[in-house]
Computed example of a mutant assay.
Amino acid sequence: MLNNQSIFITGGTGTLGRAFIKKVLSEYPDIKEITIYSRDEMKQYELRRDYSSSCFPQIKWVIGDIRDAERLSDK
């Protein structure tokens, strides 16, 4: 279902985002891209330790806030 698809997760470093990432990666190993969009740099740093680029090259990390419409539309 999600294999070869791209998904964009706002608030990806929160509780729901983390659970969703874990579930998607375990059930859809051939997902094309997951973009983690959140404003918390520390949480992104911590989550990157669990999902390193060498093991999970399909994950893209973006710092931003959903209230910033211009930044959000660039993604």
Rank of each mutant, 00 (worst) to 15 (best):
Q58W: 08
S26H: 11
D74K: 15
N4Y: 04
G64D: 13
E41L: 15
K22E: 07
S52A: 04
L16T: 09
Q5K: 12
Q5F: 06
R71C: 06
L16C: 09
I31N: 12
R18M: 02
A69G: 08
E27K: 10
W61Q: 00
G11P: 04
L47N: 02
Q44I: 01
K60N: 05
S52D: 04
K22A: 07
L16V: 07
R18W: 07
C55Q: 14
Q44P: 03
E27L: 09
I59F: 12
Y37W: 13
L72V: 15
D50M: 00
S52P: 05
I9K: 02
V62D: 12
G17I: 04
M1V: 10
T10E: 04
P29Q: 10
Y28K: 03
K43Y: 08
A19I: 07
T10I: 01
D50A: 04
D68S: 09
G64V: 10
R48V: 01
R71T: 03
N4R: 02
F8C: 01
D30M: 08
I7V: 10
C55P: 11
L25I: 08
Y51V: 00
Y45S: 05
G14C: 03
R71V: 02
G14P: 06
R48Y: 01
T13H: 05
E33R: 14
Q58E: 14
Q44Y: 01
I31D: 12
I21K: 00
R67D: 10
K23V: 07
D65Q: 14
L47W: 05
F20T: 03
A69W: 12
I9Y: 03
L16Y: 06
A69R: 14
R48Q: 01
Y45C: 08
F8V: 00
I36K: 11
M42F: 14
I36P: 08
Q5I: 06
E70L: 15
S53G: 10
K23D: 13
I66E: 11
K22V: 00
Q5R: 06
N4I: 01
L2C: 05
F8A: 00
R49F: 01
R71M: 07
T15N: 14
K23Y: 14
Y37N: 09
R71I: 08
D40Y: 10
Y37D: 11
I31H: 12
S26I: 11
S73P: 07
S73A: 15
L72T: 15
K43P: 09
A69F: 13
D74S: 15
F20H: 03
I66A: 14
P57S: 06
I7R: 02
I9C: 00
V24N: 08
R71K: 14
Q44K: 08
R48A: 02
I59N: 06
D50V: 04
E33P: 05
F20L: 07
G17E: 02
L16Q: 10
I36N: 12
I34H: 07
G14S: 04
D50R: 00
A19G: 12
F20Y: 02
S73K: 13
C55K: 15
D50L: 05
R71Q: 06
K23G: 10
T15Y: 11
P57D: 01
T15S: 14
R39V: 05
F8W: 00
K32Y: 13
L72F: 14
T10H: 02
I36A: 11
M42L: 15
Y28I: 01
Q58F: 09
G12I: 00
D74P: 04
T10K: 05
P57F: 00
S26T: 11
E70Y: 15
I63Y: 13
I59P: 08
I59G: 08
G64H: 04
